[in-house]
Amino acid sequence: MIRLDGVTLVRDGVRLLDDVSFSVPTGQALALIGAGGAGKSLVLKLVCGLIRADSGRVFVDEDEVSALDEVRLMAVRRRIGMVFQNYALFDFVDVGENVAFPLRQWGDLSAAEISARVERRLSQVNLTDATRKLTSALSGGMKKRVCLARATVHDPPIMLCDDPTAGLDPVTTNRIFALLAQLRAENTATAIIVSHEVEALRQACDRVVLLERGRVAYDGAMSDAAQSEHTGLRAFFEAGVAL
């Protein structure tokens, strides 16, 4: 379960997030949508404690993320897989080591187990051939897949995906969403997915939250959302379908 409770974030006098509250029950997937600059990425970073809110509380399962120090946060982050918007791949190691990185840092698996897991993940995302490549040599779609593999190599029960298909062609986009669904199913992971792919989100997610300028404008089940009269939501869905 992920829960935000009255979260407000102010930077340089601007309320980037204003009293944001919603929750994602265990095992469900939430589509977090909204225009650019609405605060979607900030929400994801708040959930894994990479930034801190000025007020309000953030929960991941029974842990209050907003109240933990960096050391205790590490334990929470081990349960989270984060797909970064701009890949955030390590440029000082190759693809294989990128995926192996979290496991090596935590050090509770043997080298053989780690390489077995990495191999399996990389074959799942169809990147076995690229294991020894440097990340700078990859295309955008490949980078996203590496990022997905790294985020899920430890079988996290929680997944946060920040625009996993930004700037990709439609075929690759469908492949990424299929992968996402497959990886999520393996761990019955709770997920928040930020994306603009309306159709894909409709299939992948149980709930939808629409952010408008840092405020929650709509929060409901995905099945109701299509029939909703909410103007912002309808604009979003119709524009997406028209594409």
Binding site: K45, C48, L50, E70, M74, R77, R78, I80, M82, F84, Q85, N86, Y87, A88, L89, F90, D91, F101, P102, Q105, W106, R150
Partner: peptide, 17 residues
Amino acid sequence: SMVVTEQVDALRMCGAG
């Protein structure tokens, strides 16, 4: 450049402060 490309955030997610 690691900070602006969010690699430092990714490090923190991997338990490496």
